[in-house]
Design a protein around this nucleic acid. Structure first.
Lengths: 148, 148
DNA sequence: CTCAGACTTCAAGCTCGCTTGAAGTCTGAG
DNA sequence: CTCAGACTTCAAGCGAGCTTGAAGTCTGAG
């Protein structure tokens, strides 16, 4: 059992902290693949550990399983992902992560600067309180979401 | 109608881009308050625009409505929030936002550096592939989540 | 005063991301 | 070989965060 090369669903669950029911669900949803023993039990290769970590982190930052699946779809099915595979995935995610980070930083900065300074109560703040100026251009908190 | 001081639910919906059904739901959940006309229709003060924007941005970054409600609970019910009120809210949110930003930056940096460099496939990366070393200390992708 | 259309409540329904049985099968240490 | 316990499938259920529909009421421009 020491240094086994395949993991049962229970082992994968313990290592990743993700319930077995969730792992089965990920398989149903096409995010994770497992081979089967003669008896029909799942056996995972070690790179499933990375996939699962990846899925959970991505969820933490607000991505849906569908988005994660699309991202993971760029990894090869038949073999262990190599450097180029991960690079491709990395590149496809970077803009999305950058956008999320920028959104969070804007929110934090508005809280620190704009809300903190009290201008929000003055109806003159063009950063976080753009409703009047922006109403003609559509709806939603567009400044905070990155609209120029 | 020009420069009205109160907004109907439809007007608030249009200005914020949030469906009327969602606005009613927020009221049921205690995130938003409205006075009523003699006929029973909702009328929102203008600071509801800020509250709703706030709710949506917070959701974008992965906070639950319960967390948002707790944060908004620090704002006064009876009067328009003043500078001190928003400052208090700002301070209570900053650590959470900082943590989220740090998590995203770690994820991005791992993608750029660790996955990008190919070390993930080599079983020697102690940053994104800590399962074996970390297994004894519990489960989950702990390094990425900020565990020392 | 009219009346289109925006509003009201309430109950049921939906999607996502799982969890929880139930009923049965496989695995592997002893 | 045994047998506890880890695994299997399938169906139903759950909580969050709304949406939809039905049936009726209010508002305000003309």
């Amino acid at each position: 059992m020491e240094m086994e090369h395949e993991l049962s669903i229970g082992a994968l669950s313990e290592r990743t902290g993700v319930a077995t029911s969730a792992l089965r669900y990920y398989e149903d949803e096409g995010l994770l693949h497992a081979t089967r023993t003669d008896g029909g039990q799942r056996r995972y290769t070690r790179d499933a550990l990375r996939r699962v970590s990846f899925i959970r982190v991505a969820q933490q930052v607000g991505l849906t399983l569908e988005e994660v699946r699309d991202a993971l779809a760029s990894l090869p099915d038949g073999r262990t992902p190599n450097q180029r595979d991960w690079e491709r995935l990395s590149n496809s995610w970077k803009p999305r992560l950058d956008a999320k980070i920028a959104l969070l930083e804007r929110l934090r900065d508005r809280l620190d600067g704009c809300i903190g300074c009290g201008c929000l109560t003055l109806k003159v703040c063009a950063l976080y309180n753009p409703e009047d100026q922006a109403a003609a251009r559509g709806s939603g908190p567009r400044y905070l979401f990155g609209d120029p």
